[in-house]
Nucleic acid binder design. Structure first.
Lengths: 235, 235, 235, 235
DNA sequence: GATGAATGAGCTTTCATTCAT
DNA sequence: AATGAATGAAAGCTCATTCAT
């Protein structure tokens, strides 16, 4: 096994262990055990535990950066946007292990690394923000706070990917792409027609709102605590 | 100082320390130092470190649960939805410290606790999902995958709150509420009229779409590295 | 056992272990084992291994500083000088363990500590140097390079103490004091009378130099290697 | 490069590294890096790290042994003694690096090696002691404890060489030789004439002893701390 | 109840040495 | 002979938890 292979083996092992246990619970011993090398070997390839983690994250970052294409407004915008969503989804879903680390386990590290993570987040956001702003100039994006739009979009994406990384059964990717696109395209609330948009009400399948089957306890507390009690506790 | 006061003092101290350092860097020593009690005392009130954290999180949860009202479709739905968004935002922004731990630092804990966190997430999501499904029956929610809608919404909310917790300058809450509402209400993409909706193009403030001034480098790679260089923010 | 007692116990244990093994071979495990406390306890009393060592050395230093009296030339100088030699000898011989560490094992430590050690050496030397210079003014010290005299004196003292620390059988202290005093007082070479001093030759016990019993191989190599071969190797 | 050349290169590299870092901080990696050979090669020429160090020390020893000439009492004794002092000084000052390791860094080694070092010291001392005893028979050495004289002499020499190795500016060798010779020849204390020796007082350059200008604080503690404050040398 | 000294398992990292190539 | 990747024992230090006072 040559040097680079061994490095890859360690990287793979680290990815697995990190994603299973999170950064802090992942011990160097676990990694080397999985990679079937001696402990010292680990330190031949990486200066310390933190740096393997960093390398994994940076790899994911660059794959993301490589996947996203700048939208060309002269061409089919919808297709391009969907492509981007699809690409991001693909990168992250292809590495659910790392994704879940990235999204949830990346804390408590040393400030330098946290700074790096934050910088990446800001970068991605800025990229999206600028695209949205350009889209506004081109009239394909609703006027409004592009920064918030960017944040929302990223959050929605992160959440769905995080869920997928966490759960065993994966959602069909295309459904994620479509649903997210739809959200961005037209939202989902349809209480009444937005100005300039005809009412969608009464368009067919849905009946009038039926006040009478509304919960009698309007303004009822939706208690998570209660819900929790209902679920079987064991496990 | 009576029992409950001391307990509160410890909880407060823990919250502060956790939020400043994250779960792993927060030492029991830090907490008792801030609460000005002896180390042993800590274990008189809490079985272990994890459990204080758990209690703090559960407190936040129940405040969230208490803040959310079930939407009554017979009344002003928009107001109610906005109210809910506003309430959630308020609870989380009132405790940015805990929020940021909750959203990002809660990794590497033992599986039991992680499970608990996940259970809570699912609960919240289920609540939202059911509301959306009910909304669909009532015709106020677009047909579609309510689970994905719920996920997206939660993600968007989390992200914006997380950002706020992280950054020093807070965004005006009402703007968050409005922008999120708008997203849910109509999305932000307006490439072309959705079926049944008139085109919003050329409706006023936005200039004509200029397909011909599209970037020549269509499908250009959007390099995060490049973006980094572009940002002036020294850090 | 109260705090200060435990601290003393650790200090004592450390002194023993350091002197038996030298700084590097002395393991914290050895120290705590000897002191019969848990490893963590060590770190309750000292921030790290280096600092115990530092404390031991500093203690010795201050005992030395406290023992040396400034010589008053108007009183019995010989007695005072002998007193000082005696005092230094006493301090160091009372702690042979530490003395041997101090004189031989104090290397390879971090630069800060090495600097401290060196500063102490210079201090002691400066003190002696100044005394010698004052002595020269008063006519009780031979003219000459006081710095070198100071160095020689310190070296002679160190060596004899080091030897004593190393070997099991101790030399009688008073003999050390007297012999060193004699060295400083009149040297030991008596080849021919120094100018202004009558010859000591022919004063009685010693006969004329007998050139014929000189080694025929003048300029013979005094080979340590040969001598080494002669000694039994085992142990 | 043939075997012996490579061996020499390793020895040279080791000497440099040892003297720069001391035994413990000198890593085999440093040595092979400096010698530009692979790590495994080191072990082709030396069984272990300690043995290179031992070889260096032994080399110094044999150079010392080779430099010292047995004193022939029928010839010019002063010249011969000065020659020996000069030779020792020369050998050690020519290799200040190794000298300083030898004198201060040689701690924490394994017992076997420490024993070897000690044996060498004893050998050298024995050699000197015998010379002194012979000198006493010949009437050129003051009667007295030759073992102590030997120890003092070695100590004085070591100290001055050690200082020279440590400090950047070297003392002129001839001054060291002369001053040490003078010490051995007549000491430096001249409080009052030794029996059989006329007073050296008032013989010239020095003023009369002024007992009345003695410090009023006789027997004042000579505080190192105070001395420290007095020294201007910032560090 | 309150204290805080004591505990010790467990962690990351180092580096002299080995050995397959 | 030469290489340098691999090894793994061992070290210093941390900190959640315990328990005698």
């Amino acid at each position: 096994m040559d040097k680079s292979e061994r490095r890859q083996a360690l990287l793979r092992a680290a990815r697995t262990v990190f994603s299973e246990k999170g950064y802090h619970e992942a011990k160097v011993d676990d990694i080397v055990a999985l990679a079937k090398v001696a402990k010292g070997t680990f330190y031949l390839y990486f200066p310390d535990k933190r740096s393997v983690f960093g390398e994994l994250v940076r790899g994911l970052f660059s794959r993301l950066g490589g996947a996203i294409l700048r939208v060309d407004p002269s061409a089919d915008v919808e297709a391009q946007i969907k492509h981007n969503i699809r690409a991001i989804v693909a990168v992250l879903l292809d590495d659910p292990a790392l994704t879940s680390i990235l999204l949830s386990h990346a804390a408590g590290l040393d400030p330098a690394f946290v700074k790096e993570l934050r910088a990446f987040r800001q970068e991605v956001k800025l990229l999206l923000e600028r695209s949205l702003a350009e889209g506004q100039r081109l009239g394909v994006i609703e006027p409004g706070d592009t920064e918030l739009y960017a944040t929302f979009t990223i959050g929605a994406l992160k959440e769905v990917l995080f869920e997928n990384a966490l759960e065993d059964q994966a959602r069909p990717r295309e459904r994620i792409v479509t649903a997210l696109y739809d959200l961005l395209r037209r939202g989902y609330l349809r209480m009444d027609p937005p100005p300039g948009q005809p009412a969608r009400r009464g368009e067919g399948e849905r009946g009038a709102p039926a006040p009478e089957d509304a919960a009698p306890d309007r303004a009822e507390r939706a208690s998570p605590a209660r819900a929790r009690r209902a679920r079987p506790k064991g496990d």
